[in-house]
């Protein structure tokens, strides 16, 4: 149970920069997700926190104390790897007990059985990891990470090796566990649904930097940059380049890009012209893609029955308040005074 602060944290390898100076504060007991495409430095950040890597510069603070040089084994951090990293030469019980072999834990075995109960694997304790399914291995890894009451729980893409239904249950289960135990948790993932459904706050990273920190709603409704706008949301946002000059006569920054979520666009009599060239029925709604003078656009209609088919021409209208405007550098402009682009 700890508060975690990162100050200008940087990690460079020989030539590449994996983490390019990030500042982040995580409250005690908070569940934070680090979200980003592969190679954005999110896993490196996690291993810096675990103490497996040494930072190149910047500071890591646990409860206000600098822990940069503290070895991984003394940081009291629990970690669940994408591959689960169970020890194949030990039984499930021995796996869960492994962390207690290095610190005096009274009643270690009873505690291990409690942890087993908590993650619902009591009947598997004598088996070998190779005899377990992916979901069961995941639970064992969680129990092993939690048995020593860690200051910080780190989850590295923990759900990406599970099938869709199991992912749904594990999502809820991990959330329940961390809330019950009150442990500060950092989840690293490239899956936006995982991040937005589980975390109190989401940290969106790109190319070693933090693009935005906020709640799921912040990231979706008020993306700070075009990267966040494009990365969050499925189907992705429409980003339409505007023909305005970068700066107007008064020296005011002018919007350069217009962001419109597919569900904010409505087909009507007037608006952006579009020729539909692909129709996807997605269950509750239908996704149309097409091309027009403003480039490729997508829009959603809340009907399962397709209203148009390939080759149809439509006009797309939207409410100015729903649009998001970005400047030339890709930053969101604060007051969205939307303008039409006819």
């Amino acid at each position: 149970m700890a508060r975690v602060d990162l100050h200008a944290l940087t990690k460079t390898w020989d030539k590449a920069t994996a983490v390019a100076g990030i500042d982040l504060s995580i409250d005690d007991g908070e569940f934070v997700a680090i979200l980003g495409p592969s190679g954005c430095g999110k896993s490196t950040t996690l291993f810096l926190l675990a103490g497996v890597y040494l930072p190149s510069s910047g500071d890591i603070l646990f409860d206000g104390t600098r822990v940069n040089e503290v070895e991984a084994r003394h940081r009291n951090v629990g970690i669940v790897f994408q591959s689960y990293a169970l020890y194949p030469n030990m039984s499930v019980l021995q796996n869960i007990l492994f962390p207690t072999r290095f610190q005096k834990t009274p009643d270690a075995e009873r505690r291990a059985r409690e942890m087993g109960e908590l993650v619902q694997i009591t009947e598997l304790l004598d088996r070998r990891p190779s005899e377990l399914s992916g979901g069961q291995q995941q639970r064992v890894a969680l129990a092993r990470a939690l048995i020593k009451r860690p200051n910080l729980l780190l989850l590295d893409e923990p759900l990406s090796n599970l099938d869709a239904t199991l992912r749904l249950t594990m999502r809820a289960e991990i959330r329940r566990l961390t809330r019950d135990l009150g442990v500060t948790t950092i989840l690293v993932t490239h899956d936006q649904l995982e991040a937005t459904t589980m975390a109190d706050r989401v940290v969106c990273m790109n190319a070693g930097r933090i693009e935005q920190v906020g709640t799921a709603e912040d990231l979706y409704m008020r993306p700070e940059t075009t990267f966040v706008a494009g990365f969050i949301g499925s189907p992705p946002i429409n980003l339409i380049p505007l023909p305005t000059p970068g700066v107007d006569a008064q020296g005011q920054t002018q919007p350069q890009t217009l962001g419109l979520r597919p569900e904010m666009l409505h087909a009507g009599e007037s608006g952006l012209p579009l020729q539909i060239d692909h129709v996807e029925v997605m269950g509750r709604e239908t996704l149309y893609s097409g091309t027009g003078p403003n480039g490729a656009l997508r829009f959603l209609e809340p009907t399962a029955q397709p209203r148009w088919s390939m080759g149809d021409r439509v006009h797309l209208d939207f409410a100015p308040a729903d649009s998001i405007l970005f400047d030339a550098a890709g930053r969101r402009l604060p007051d969205a005074t939307a303008r039409r682009t006819e």
Binding site: G51, V52, A85, F102, K148
Partner: peptide, 18 residues
Amino acid sequence: VPWDIEMSAMTDGASRRQ
């Protein structure tokens, strides 16, 4: 032998030699 397993052991409290 995957790297993960070793990193996991080290975060579990083992020294590199252990």
